[in-house]
Design a binder for these strands. Structure first.
Length: 663
DNA sequence: AGTCACTTATTTTAGACAGCATGTC
DNA sequence: CTAAAATAAGTGACT
């Protein structure tokens, strides 16, 4: 199927042809056959980089009215926004928490790109443009099963369809086990394919040999680092070849081999610290020289060093100068940008990364090495979900640049079979709804009431009727849970039951606090905690900015900050010394550890507005520079929510605006 | 006393969405 | 029901 034959205006077909898109990829053609251009609902469960964006564009450009593109990450939203904005004669808007580029209103745009939370928020705040949409594209729908965020996505999609029954829905998913269930939910035609523009083969490496899924085997030269010069005693010939090399040695050999063949590599590891240490180890291998990119690598290093003076920044700069990099959420966005763009420009041989890179912006490499397949989950070490490993592997192979992509899982001889079974031959997990999680229900039930969509339990159930959960489990499955949830919300002061005339006849309405909580987009538990804190703070003789910070940090909407053993005693002293400025007494909390972590976060933020530098805070509190940035960003949001709540309950806590203005 | 090789105990562990109102030459 | 790696601290032989 050719682009020229598509029902698009010539301006668009020309644009696509100019960009080298003439012939449709098979999955794209299948989408056209399924009617994406005629307003049909379509679910495409296809690999990354097999042309999803184009399918989205077809739907949006042929839709009979404004379109919406929903995606899970801000960085992704930016990427798509730019892709759409480059199309001729098109008004494109973007709306994410950190970025708005659409003039005063989103109404009037042909295409709007936004995160799912932002759409949810727009609906709660009664944005009118939402009702005029003719088409919505949901990217990465498999995120439906993510905690917290999945329910938001499904409720948002359900609400959009309820408000707007004729809306065309196009959903793009990674390969999952039950795409048919998603398609059934959306009344859509399912397009399923494993086709990729670049071949991908996946294998398991044990020692220096890789067994691929296509039956081929490769030997990788292990110019192994000097083996420990001990006697022959320790390496008593346990397993097959080269068994005294550990996973990191194998990983290094795989990276070196990729570079020797002129490719780039992504290496996935378990933790931030290991991403850094792997990068530092690879930095000693002279990869920059081998690729002949010394000058560009040095420039990238300087760029990274210019971001800040933190230890992390220096480490990254040093690695970059040697042609390698690391990437994880503790990096500031400036660091990440340098790493990502240097890699795309081929000025970096290898990125050692945590899963940030698996689902984030597009950074394809010839080879992907997954060194660690297990991760600590809070109680034990668990295998990574197959879906996640597949997403990492899917980054292998740059269309048009690499002959094929290679994904290699590093294992031991005794784990080989398990790795093959689980990740090479294994099917990805099925997507399951998490809407029944009580915390999510509280949020969305409150929202349904506050927006006026529902006034009774049964109307709440109606709102949820269009969700993936209801489709899979039946809406009745939520009936009891919804009743309990309303009781919870009544107890929290978010809603109340109002008797209306007849006996047992009542309607549920949001209290002013509940309304503000929903509009400010904080969780009900946060709203409740903040209201309590504000009332306490209002009568405190010496409330300070620390008070304001403690109030917002001791909520589930603020991420907690790891409190090391070493620090704990000191933090305890700090809390005691400042107990007069804290809204919670030391003995009042039933989660002392959690509260102490909040105090740590509050303390960091308080020092931040007192003028402490990133370098000092990162050093003193052992957090990544990116962690500080994200906490500051959240604090801004939560303080503004706190201010709004203070206004609705008519309480004045001057330290809140004071803290806010100094962030 | 100081150094070094080695053993044992302790510590730590991925990621990332949201509000709101303006003013940059 | 399940972990693993890095680092800190401790131990002991030897100079």
């Amino acid at each position: 199927m050719r682009v020229r034959n598509l029902p698009l205006s010539s301006a668009y077909t020309e644009h696509f042809v100019e960009n080298g898109i003439r012939e449709l990829y098979p999955p794209q053609a299948a989408a056209v056959d399924a009617g994406v251009c005629e307003g049909s609902n379509v679910v495409a469960a296809i690999p990354t980089a097999s042309g999803k964006t184009f399918i989205a564009q077809l739907a949006l450009l042929t839709a009979d009215g404004p379109g919406l593109y929903v995606c899970p990450l801000r960085a992704l939203a930016r990427e798509k926004y730019e892709a759409f904005a480059s199309l001729p004669d098109l008004e494109v808007g973007i709306s994410t928490g950190d970025f708005d580029a659409s003039g005063e209103a989103l109404a009037g745009n042909d295409i709007i790109v936004a995160t799912s939370e932002k759409i949810d928020s727009a609906i709660r705040n009664g944005a009118s443009w939402v009702d005029e949409l003719a088409c919505v594209v949901v990217d990465e729908v498999h995120l439906l099963d993510a905690d917290r965020r999945g329910p938001t996505l499904e409720v948002t999609v359900a609400t959009l369809r309820r408000q707007n029954p004729d809306i065309q829905v196009v959903a793009l998913s990674a390969t999952v086990d039950n795409p048919d269930a998603i398609a059934a939910w959306l009344d859509a035609t399912l397009i399923q394919s494993t086709w990729r523009p670049v071949d991908l083969r996946t294998g398991v490496a044990v020692g220096g040999s890789i067994d691929f899924d296509d039956g081929t085997t490769r030997e990788i030269p292990l110019d192994g680092p000097a083996r420990k010069g001990g006697n022959g005693g320790d390496g008593d010939g346990s397993d097959d070849g080269g068994s005294d090399l550990d996973d990191t040695d194998v990983t290094a050999a795989l990276v070196a081999n990729t570079v020797a063949e002129g490719g780039q590599c992504l290496a996935f590891v378990r933790s931030r610290a290991e991403a850094v240490s792997l990068a530092q180890r690879l930095a000693a291998d002279g990869l920059a020289e081998q690729m002949g990119i010394e000058a560009a690598a040095a420039a990238a290093g300087d760029e990274a060093a210019a971001v800040d003076g933190t230890v992390t920044g220096h480490q990254l700069a040093d690695c970059l100068r040697s042609g390698v990099a690391f990437h994880h959420a503790g990096l500031r966005s400036g660091h990440r940008t340098v790493v990502e763009s240097a890699f795309r420009d081929r000025d970096v041989a290898c990125i050692c990364a945590t899963p940030t890179l698996a689902a984030g912006v597009n950074v394809p490499a010839r080879r992907v090495v997954v060194r660690d397949q297990k991760r600590y989950t809070g109680s034990a070490m668990e295998w990574l979900p197959t879906l996640e490993v597949h997403q990492m592997c899917g980054r292998a192979g740059r269309p048009g640049l690499d002959p094929h992509g290679e994904a290699v899982l590093v294992g031991e001889s005794d784990s080989r079979d398990e790795l093959v079974e689980r990740y090479v031959d294994g099917e990805p997990e099925a997507v399951e709804s998490t809407l029944s999680d009580p915390a999510s229900l509280r949020t969305h039930v409150l929202s349904a009431i506050a927006t006026g969509f529902a006034e009774t339990e049964s109307e709440i159930l109606d709102v949820f009727e269009g969700t993936f959960y209801a489709r899979e489990a039946g809406a009745g499955g939520l009936a009891d849970a919804v009743g309990d949830t309303v009781d919870d919300l009544v107890a929290a002061g978010m809603v109340r039951r109002e008797t209306a005339g007849g006996v047992g006849d009542y309607r549920i309405v949001a209290t002013p606090v509940g309304e503000t909580t929903s509009r400010q987009y904080v969780r009900p538990e946060t709203g409740e905690r903040v209201v309590d804190g504000l009332r306490t703070a209002a009568v405190m003789p010496n409330a300070t900015t620390l008070t304001a910070f403690e109030l917002i940090c001791d909520t589930p909407d603020m991420q907690d900050t790891y409190l090391g053993n070493e620090e704990r005693a000191e933090m305890y002293r700090f809390a005691r010394a400042n107990s007069g400025a804290l809204t919670t007494g030391m003995r009042e909390t039933d989660d002392f550890e959690g509260w102490l972590e909040s105090v740590k976060t509050a303390r960091i933020l308080d020092e931040w507005i007192e003028g402490a530098t990133v370098e000092e805070l990162v050093e003193a509190y052992r957090i990544g520079p990116g962690d500080l940035d994200s906490r500051v960003e959240r604090a801004e949001w939560l303080l503004s929510a706190a201010q709004a709540l203070a206004d609705t309950i008519g309480v004045s806590v001057p330290s809140v605006p004071r803290a806010r203005s100094r962030l």
